[in-house]
Simulated assay, not measured.
Amino acid sequence: MSTLKSYLQLTRPANIVTAIADILAGMAIVRYPFEANPAYWLVLSTVGLYGGGVVLNDVFDAKLDAVERPERPIPSGKVPLQSAAFMGISLLVLGIISAGLFSLLSVEIAIAVALLAVLYNRFAKHSALFGPLTMGLCRGGNLLLGMSAINTSLPEWGWLALVPIAYIGAITLISQDEVHGGKRRSLYIAASLYTSVHAIQFLVAVNQKNGSMALLLIALHALLVGLPLWKALQNPIAPNIGKAVKAGVLSLIVMDAAWCIAFGNWPVALGVLLLLPLSILLARAFAVT
């Protein structure tokens, strides 16, 4: 059981739940008829893509983690490095194949996300600029993967993928100082990106005549990410930064639910919100960052 848990830890299960929320939000944005076809393939695709990406993150960071985080599955010896590498690649392939079983556009987006994940893990992650940008592109691609459920809607709504790019860029920027503590400058930049995200969400919701209802979830999301970030700004030590990163990741579900309401899909918004307690529960058993 401990071995199985170690392998699961590599995939960050709580984070994978947030990736599923992205897919549902993307489908809600393009007004996909969920009752006709739940699009299981796209959900399975994001499980593979996200899981594979974070597993390979630990593979590429094995030497660094041996010094900074020796308790992790690979440096602790609970999961052999080669086994983890095979697992990560297999999950990415699963994500691509699953997308291909849905549509040609979906598989093209999945391939792009997989390549971006490898690029981030191998080269970009240690760059203050390209690390947050590349990780943001991965999450933006994930939202586009959900939108690919109705490919004719991408020209109209594809630009919304810029929002998770900015949001995840902010989280990644914060997380770069998670081990040793950080500087307030990065936290202020993240705060400005968060504010921009909330403003865009609200404006889109107003344009769709759903501003007042979406505002409730947007405000909740701002509270969930704002309080930990404020504490980190007051005292930018590693534990506070870690909490800010964790809050940013898990509360993605609330942001995705806000997208669903912004486009008038209450049932899917409720379904997305129900993923939050699952993600929180998984976060208690498995590390998020």
Rank of each mutant, 00 (worst) to 15 (best):
Y50Q: 08
G169M: 05
T134C: 11
E71V: 03
I200W: 08
G100A: 10
A219D: 15
S2C: 11
R185K: 12
I241A: 07
A149L: 06
V268I: 10
A124V: 11
S153W: 04
G271E: 07
A190C: 01
L56S: 00
P70W: 00
R185V: 15
W259M: 01
V17D: 06
M255A: 14
V17L: 01
A161V: 03
L104D: 00
S45H: 02
Y32I: 11
A205K: 12
G95S: 05
G146N: 03
P132L: 11
P267I: 08
S103T: 15
S192C: 10
A238Y: 07
I97H: 02
L44F: 03
K183H: 09
A219G: 13
G95F: 05
W159M: 00
V254A: 11
L216V: 14
I109P: 02
R184T: 12
L154E: 04
V59G: 08
E178Y: 06
V107G: 00
K246S: 13
M27H: 04
N37I: 07
W230K: 13
L115R: 00
P164W: 05
L160F: 11
L81S: 02
L275H: 09
A62L: 02
V55Y: 10
F202I: 12
T289Q: 15
L278G: 06
Y7F: 13
S186D: 11
A283D: 07
S279D: 06
I241D: 03
T195I: 07
L44A: 03
N37T: 09
F60E: 01
L154I: 15
V225L: 14
I74E: 01
L203M: 10
V288N: 01
R122T: 09
K243A: 15
G271V: 07
I253C: 14
R12L: 13
L275K: 12
H198M: 14
R284W: 13
N15A: 14
I174P: 08
D22N: 09
G48P: 03
S6T: 08
L274A: 09
L250K: 04
S279L: 05
N207Y: 10
T152K: 09
T172F: 08
G264E: 01
G181I: 08
N142F: 03
G226A: 13
K125H: 05
G131P: 14
P164R: 05
I168D: 04
G146T: 09
I171G: 06
F123S: 15
Y194W: 14
E156R: 07
Q9P: 02
P164F: 02
G48K: 01
S212W: 13
V268S: 01
S175H: 04
A283I: 10
Q201H: 12
E156K: 00
N240T: 09
S153A: 11
S6D: 14
V163E: 04
I16W: 12
I189T: 10
I109V: 10
P132E: 12
W230I: 14
S45Q: 01
L227A: 07
R284I: 04
L227D: 14
P75L: 06
K5Q: 15
I165S: 05
S279G: 06
I29N: 13
